[in-house]
């Protein structure tokens, strides 16, 4: 289902992930979140921006376990745990946050 933000339409796959990563913008992330009834807070953005940096560096979306550990390393143990991340992204931190970050679905995610 394509997403339209400010008159510009971008393509997604059948699960809502961006077809072209370069189409990403903060507005698109907000629009994706709105569809899920999710209001993006500063805490959400921290994770989304982290994922974008991770992808830039490694060209893959991390597995949940790897994301959790890496977030803990960067933002501290109170954020690097499943409970915190699942509260932010109830559909699954890797799955949902990756989608908002414009990344492909993590390898191995079903």
């Amino acid at each position: 289902m394509p997403i339209t933000v400010a008159g510009k339409t971008v393509e997604t796959d059948e699960e809502g992930y961006l077809a072209n990563r370069t189409d990403w913008s903060e507005e698109i992330a907000k629009e994706m979140a709105k569809v899920d009834n999710c209001d993006l807070s500063q805490n959400h953005w921290e994770v989304i921006n982290f994922l974008r940096q991770y992808y830039d560096e490694y060209q893959i979306a991390p597995a949940v376990r790897v994301l959790t550990k890496a977030i803990g390393k960067k933002l501290g143990p109170d954020k690097g745990n499943s409970k915190y991340l699942y509260e932010l992204f109830p559909y699954g931190p890797a799955k949902q946050a990756c989608k908002y970050a414009g990344l492909p679905k993590p390898t191995g995610c079903v």
């Binding site: 490694y58 060209q59 893959i60 790897v66």
Partner: peptide
Amino acid sequence: VKNFSPAYRALEGY
């Protein structure tokens, strides 16, 4: 073609 060589550097995190 996608350059997947950076992903080998992610293995440590796995």
